[in-house]
């Protein structure tokens, strides 16, 4: 059984989320900061008139924030739409369930919470992200 994953990078990590959860990919625009919000909330963005919460995935994964321009992956989470800030967008990759392996126990807590496991690609590992966990 194969799945299509939208891939993106966070530093040197390659991550992926199922293509059917992604609404669109956009360059990160201006965000309105939300004072007192948790660290990983990057702010609110205006997505064609809809106010969408933007989550900084780097923060969510316990990585230092990055000032450079980032990309937004807009995903569906239940009834809401959430945009995930990532470094760079990669290809849409087709992965096979056979390549999948559960995450090692040694993973940091932050990662453990949002990573379902890894697909062993020939060259590198592709981390499968739990969209719901990452966005909430």
């Amino acid at each position: 059984m194969t799945t299509q994953l939208v891939t993106f990078t966070l530093d040197d990590r390659l991550c992926g989320i199922p293509v059917d959860r992604v609404q669109e990919v956009l360059p990160g625009g201006t965000r309105t900061r939300v004072p007192l919000a948790p660290d990983d909330v990057a702010g609110l963005v205006n997505l064609r008139g809809q106010v969408v919460l933007s989550v900084d995935l780097r923060r969510r994964l316990g990585m230092p924030a990055r000032d450079e321009d980032q990309m937004m992956v807009v995903v569906f989470v239940g009834d809401e739409t959430v945009s995930l800030l990532v470094d760079q967008i990669g290809d849409v990759l087709e992965v096979d369930a056979e390549q999948f392996e559960a995450p090692p126990q040694t993973l940091t807590d932050e990662l453990q919470a949002v990573i379902l496991g890894a697909y062993k690609l020939p060259q590198r590992l592709l981390l499968a992200l739990d969209v719901d966990a990452a966005a909430s």
Partner: peptide, 12 residues
């Protein structure tokens, strides 16, 4: 516009 429940919880 409604905001995500996470932000509502801030209470501001």
């Amino acid at each position: 516009k409604a905001i995500a429940s996470r932000l509502k919880q801030i209470g501001m």
